[in-house]
Simulated scan of single mutants.
Amino acid sequence: MSARHNEKYLETGRTRQKSRTREELVSVLRDLLKDGRDPSVAEVAAIAGISRTTAYRYFPDKEALLHAALPETGLGSLLGGDPPSDVRARLERTLDAHFDFIRAWEPQLRASLRLSLTPGAARPTLRGGRAVGWYRDALSPLETAGSGIDTAALAVRLRAVAGIEPYVWLRDVAGLRTGQAFDVMRANALDILDAALAGAK
């Protein structure tokens, strides 16, 4: 079932009941992610008391359900409308949005991180490497400016200093407050960008 077919299903018939059913599936997934689970659509449906067939009418796969529960995971960019052309301003906007995402979904992100560190466990759905794409999108003007900078490698370096892993270390090990942790990650990311730009010159 395509996303478009899913939208048509929700827009016809008993729309209020369908909206409640959809929200129940989304709510159950959020709770399970917070508890360190990485369930399938069928597992979410069973816990919600909704038939598997019905659940798949709303969400054809786990990714679709995840995007509904945590909308940012479905985005290829965090720049929003009318993005700036200056690469440093683009990075700052992306950092702001990424940090907002961490604030909003910290329990789920922490649980997913714990799950990913379990020996033999499959990579959780939340650990999909999306943030590297967000940072590469922020750096995209460099690809057309003839800078000679490897934006793919630079995006990985930025993600290494800005994400749930460094955030957890800064909070739990270094003992920083939330705002302080984000300030450190922002400064590190901007320093990396500034050094790359200076080297290109």
Results as ranks from 00 to 15, higher is better:
E165A: 15
T144Y: 13
D96E: 11
L193T: 03
R171E: 08
T15Y: 00
T178F: 04
S27P: 04
S51I: 03
S85V: 11
A89T: 08
Y167Q: 04
Q17C: 11
W105P: 00
T94Q: 04
L29R: 03
E106H: 14
I47L: 15
P71C: 06
T15V: 15
R127K: 05
L65K: 00
T53D: 05
R14L: 10
D82C: 05
A121E: 12
S27N: 12
S116P: 02
S2P: 13
E23R: 15
L126V: 06
T54W: 05
G120W: 09
L29D: 01
A42K: 02
P71A: 09
W105A: 11
L190D: 03
A89H: 05
I50C: 03
A152R: 12
G146K: 12
L70W: 07
E24F: 03
A160N: 11
D86K: 05
A195I: 04
V168P: 01
G179E: 15
V132G: 00
V168F: 04
H98M: 07
T21W: 06
V87G: 01
S147K: 10
Y56L: 09
G76Q: 13
A64H: 12
T15F: 00
A45V: 01
Q180N: 10
R177L: 14
E92W: 05
L25F: 04
P141C: 07
P124R: 02
V168Q: 13
A122L: 09
R88N: 07
R177V: 09
G49E: 09
A3V: 10
R14I: 09
G13H: 10
E106V: 04
T118D: 10
L139Y: 01
R37P: 00
P60A: 08
T178I: 10
I149N: 02
H67Y: 10
W134R: 02
D82R: 11
V168I: 08
A3P: 02
D183E: 15
D172C: 06
L113M: 13
I102F: 02
L176N: 06
D194H: 08
A198N: 09
A187V: 04
L29P: 00
V26P: 02
S112W: 03
G148N: 08
L142Y: 03
R157K: 12
W105C: 08
R110I: 05
R127E: 14
F101P: 02
P39Y: 10
L139N: 00
Y56I: 06
W105Q: 08
A187Y: 10
T21M: 15
D100Q: 13
S140I: 05
S2D: 15
G76V: 09
S77F: 07
Q108L: 10
K62E: 11
R130G: 06
D86Q: 08
L113K: 07
D191I: 09
G49Y: 14
A198K: 15
L70F: 15
R4H: 14
E11T: 04
R52N: 13
